[in-house]
């Protein structure tokens, strides 16, 4: 377990309106079809408030913040 928070996009929910990338260009860019590319997903502390806004403002609630964990 760590305290590191990770930005995760639900790929089925996301319909590529790109709001998240506008809010958080430091972490999210869009591909040629308008869908977000989240490179590592790790959110540095100073970007947490914006990341939280991305979570709240995504029109389809596809963005979540998760504690980084080891895969099973």
């Amino acid at each position: 377990m760590s305290d590191q928070l990770k930005l995760v996009v639900d790929r089925i929910k996301c319909d590529g309106r790109g709001l998240c990338a506008e809010l958080l260009p430091e972490l999210i860019r869009l591909d040629d079809w308008g869908y977000p590319i989240v490179d590592s997903g790790n959110v540095p502390k100073h970007l947490l408030p914006l990341a939280q806004r991305a979570v709240e403002d995504c029109p389809v609630l596809a963005v979540t913040l998760r504690r980084a964990e080891v895969k099973r």
Binding site: C14, D15, G16, D31, W33, G34
Partner: peptide
């Protein structure tokens, strides 16, 4: 055809 990067990406 549920996820954009797969549906549009593979088609592209």
């Amino acid at each position: 055809a549920q996820c954009g990067p797969c549906f549009f990406g593979l088609r592209a």
